[in-house]
Every structure is written in structure tokens, then in C-alpha cells.
Amino acid sequence: MTPRRKKRLILVGLLLAGVTTGTALALYSFKQNLMFFYPPSDVVAGKAPAHHAFRLGGLVEKGSLKRRPNGLTVEFDVTDLKKSVHVQYTGILPDLFREGQGIVAKGRLGPGGIFIADEVLAKHDEKYMPPEVAASLKKAHAKGVTTAETQTP
């Protein structure tokens, strides 16, 4: 390798190292701002903003979904399997919305720690399988066969 090329190689290396370090530091310091949603634990611990809107993400707790008799208002609990937050929402829910499903809700904390949502999005996992496979997995799960099937939001 000629000395000129060696010099250029060092320059390229320095360029890459500099850009990588800069970006890594920037991303590290903005880590909290780059999170798309707050898990229920953070909300219960008071880490979520109290006076402006934020997103809450987690699973719809099984058995918690209640529909108000007249209208589009629903209430449910969002959990990260440690803590849960009560959510109230008026509007159309996405097709994938159901108990046990991961969701991300946008809104703000109301009186009594209730999260008043004005948008609810469904979050699905990275698994793809035919319905019959999902059904047999569920059956095996019910029988007490432990699989790595816990869906993380």
C-alpha cells in the first residue's frame, strides 16, 4: 500500500470513528426522548409527564375490558405484568384490539390516575404462524407446557 493510500485509509477510519462516537453519544443522551411510549411501571412511579400528553404502552389486562352501555367509550387496564394503569378511551379501536393484546395509547393523566386516551394503536408481535399452530400452542400452554410465549409490548 502506497503512503498516500495509507494516509487516506487512516482518514476514512477517523471519519467513521468520529461519526460513530458522535452519534452514539447523542443517542445515549437522548435515550429517554427516543422511547415511543412509557410502560405502566414508569407511570405509576410518577416518571411520566403529569401535565402534558404522552404515550402509554403495554398489554390490555385480561378481564379488564368494559364497554359503556351507550356509545363508544371503553375502559380497560394496561399492564406490563408488574403494574397497571386504568385507561378510558372514546373512539374506534383498531381491529387487533382485544384483551391480552399489546397496545400503545396516546393521552394524558386525568384525576385519580386514570389515563384519558385520545388515540389507541395496536402493537402486534414479531411472530407469524397459521391459526392451527397458534391454537395447538395455546392448548399446550394450557396443559402447563411452558414456552417462551409471553408477548412483550
Binding site: 443517542l27 427516543l34 411510549f37 410502560p39 394503536l121 408481535d125 414479531e126 411472530k127 404462524m129
Partner: peptide, 23 residues
């Protein structure tokens, strides 16, 4: 690294892909 609305990797990760072989 961050929590996102987009789900995690299905195929491009260590370990078996979380997708049925027929898919």
C-alpha cells in the same frame, strides 16, 4: 434499543426465526 410501535426482528436475529417455515 428503544420501545417502538414497530415489532422486533422476526428473521434477522440470533436464534430461530419466529415465523412458520411455510411462510
Amino acid at each position: 434499543w428503544w420501545n417502538t410501535l414497530h415489532q422486533g426482528p422476526t428473521v434477522t436475529k440470533l436464534g430461530a426465526p419466529s415465523i412458520d417455515p411455510r411462510m
